[in-house]
Design a protein around this nucleic acid. Structure first.
Lengths: 157, 157
DNA sequence: ACTTTCCCTAGTAATCCGATAGGAAAACTA
DNA sequence: TAGTTTTCCTATCGGATTACTAGGGAAAGT
């Protein structure tokens, strides 16, 4: 037995947290990488690389020099958590490295493909609907809250 | 940018396919590892290790020698896909290696915890409900089918 | 100029992934 | 009892990935 499962990597987690810090700062103010790193307890050189990805992905804009730093490229209401994860870490869900639609199964495993598709659809339902603004304001949509409030969702196995 | 995201490993995929092959064979007949490997195109020595995990996890029973092989330990209707993945690959969903309930966030990231919980709950809704019997018979529950039939679920990003 | 801050390339230690090899132990066959 | 079959165990492997670190160059501001 291994200890992986479907994992959200440190990269993805850090990327979302950094983006949340930017969302909370508002779209005028810009934050320096070092400040974000300190606020969220992220290794700052590692974070710099992640912020570079967010910039190349068009989610963030940067300025260097004295009053430089990073800020969101668009409104926090228009950036889904899924957008951040995809830009920092690649496709949301993959099976054996490839995305579900490219898979092919045979025999009794044939219905596995629609199953993985359903998993991905359900992940998207959460991460594609919830925006940085939602999380930063601690106001998750009702659908999501009702998922998270179910006590059974917090039990471990 | 990386190329991971939330991945279902080869181990997990292989484990489910092997279990499906056993489910399709019925609870009387037992299949040899080599036969399963050939049917599903899985490296047989790799599969042997996975079948060992399924046995230690109590999902499968084995017999050695002449008419030996593997068969399911319980009815295929009572084994969820999530059970197979957990036994072969560890916790269904984890963030940075730890399971959501053990995380703690601060500042604007505080609502990230309920968000990951919601993701996990939605993954469980699919993988915890669907059984080996469902997939092997190609008869997914209606809830799942309606997720998988949405054309938008098949589009890539 | 000079400082600040982003930006880029490279490196690294540890871990994991997917796979392979060889044989010991058990069960069946005859 | 001898011999075959199949599971079971341990050990190893190259290569990729993860999570970081180091060092410096390029731009922007003062």
């Amino acid at each position: 037995m291994n200890n992986r499962g479907m994992r959200i990597s440190a990269r993805a987690d850090y990327a979302v947290r950094a983006a949340l810090e930017l969302a909370a700062a508002g779209s005028e103010a810009s934050l320096k990488a070092e400040a974000i790193a300190a606020a969220q307890g992220i290794p700052h050189k590692f974070l710099e690389g992640i912020l570079g990805d967010l910039r190349r992905g068009g989610l963030v804009v940067s300025r260097r020099g004295g009053q430089g730093g990073y800020r969101l490229a668009r409104a926090a209401e228009s950036i889904a958590i899924a957008d951040v994860i995809r830009v920092a870490d690649g496709p949301l869900v993959s099976v054996r490295g490839v995305r579900p639609p490219e898979l092919s199964y045979c025999g009794p495993a044939e219905s596995l493909l629609p199953l993985w598709i359903a998993v991905r659809a359900n992940v998207r339902k959460v991460l594609g609907e919830v925006t940085l603004a939602h999380v930063a304001a601690a106001k998750l949509p009702d659908e999501i809250l009702s998922l998270a409030e179910d006590p059974e969702a917090w039990t471990n196995p």
